[in-house]
Design a protein around this nucleic acid. Sequence first.
DNA 1: ATATCTGTTTGATGTATAGCAATCAGCATT
DNA 2: AATGCTGATTGCTATACATCAAACAGATAT
Lengths: 243, 243
Amino acid sequence: MTQDNAVSASKSIDLTGDDLNLVRSVAMFRVLPFEIVEQILSDCSIEEYQSGDGLFLQGERAEAFFIVLSGWIKLYRVTAQGDETVIGVFTRGQSFAEAVALVNKEFPASCEAVTDARLVRVPCVRLRQRIMQKPEIGLAMIASTAQHLHLLVQEVEQLKARTGAERVSEFLLSLTDVEQGAAVIALPYEKMLIAGRLGMTQETLSRSFARLRRYGVKVSGRMVNIADVDQLRQGIFRDNYAG
Amino acid sequence: MTQDNAVSASKSIDLTGDDLNLVRSVAMFRVLPFEIVEQILSDCSIEEYQSGDGLFLQGERAEAFFIVLSGWIKLYRVTAQGDETVIGVFTRGQSFAEAVALVNKEFPASCEAVTDARLVRVPCVRLRQRIMQKPEIGLAMIASTAQHLHLLVQEVEQLKARTGAERVSEFLLSLTDVEQGAAVIALPYEKMLIAGRLGMTQETLSRSFARLRRYGVKVSGRMVNIADVDQLRQGIFRDNYAG
DNA sequence: ATATCTGTTTGATGTATAGCAATCAGCATT
DNA sequence: AATGCTGATTGCTATACATCAAACAGATAT
């Protein structure tokens, strides 16, 4: 919600081994040869934001896109009536706003850090030149925006076809790698934001958690215990028939 | 709903003047020089579908994308429980599935014609080669997918933040160019589909129309009369405060 | 004209969710 | 220990919406 675009530390690129590996594995870079990724990175800077800092506002002209190194970033829109709609939440290894930035359109949503965060900022003027030289970069970007489209398509489906509790348990299940048996999850950010992300209010989220108790879900603070992931998956499914 | 991918007439490209102009004005072609568009078109074919014919199914590998010349096309997903979620509806002048097709991913949704329809089918193998030769085609495609992203972002916001009646009136207002005063609209497709498109049931749509009567909206069959578009816009807005 | 079909409207009812308010729990400040 | 702050939970109530069922209208076929 912070209005002022934070004066964040902006260093010339200097990635540790881990971060470098991460960036190379980002959707749009994964398919590109290492030299090209390095060239692109040489145009970039690293930015650090504090929780609440704004990255950009809806309607601003996009001149760069971002890759998250750490922390959580929220994309949101503010309606005429002043209430906020969360469009997406991104974290380590994800990029966002590539497509709009590359064509210098206006951001369709605003963006802010919801935890302290480190990002790679990829300015687009140079990138556009590089695409003209190496068209495979363009193809890679199309691939990664295709993925974002897919995510949004899923979100639309969820909103239209799934109930609150269903969305909550899908969200929980998406947070763990566990395929069978018990799982422990740390909620990645505040419940307030999770609620927004899932298109419901704080209260409804809380009640959804409560309702999931009978399927072996126990929530205390940010810790979530799932007795049996299969039971949870089945539980939701069953409800659809039981009514 | 038709499962068999219809054996539709597929002619080599032969566009009438009108259609040619239309294709040239499609988002991704608009910024490209005419010769390039013609080259791309030389790889394409025109396909005709009848109402209900399927274009592709969710999960199929994408090998082409489409531009609508006439008719209406519906993108939808079918959930595990078998009910259908409309993701988007496209008509004359719009393209869809570009991004997925270009990277040969699987379609994230299924697609069928909801009226008789004529489409340009743009196969992607050749297009990928052309992008490698002329990278500006890649840039243009990124631009047009950016637009689709924008559309989906708006849809997510609408679903999360707007009530049924609000979405209906926004939909109505989006169908007319009239800025002030009275407007007459012909609903573009069946109410059933409109309801799906707006994320509600047939019945709720009907009741939403009824509720909009007090704002000067009269519906009879496919004809919609709006006494005063401003009144409608204001009316919705007012409700948000009056509760 | 009658029958039939499909799409639409209307009514009755149950449920999910939002909104408001009170309480509570954790955490930091003093 | 007392104070406030913020986030989370819970109860209560109003409402929007889905679902089921019935009536209805326009089109087509018999």
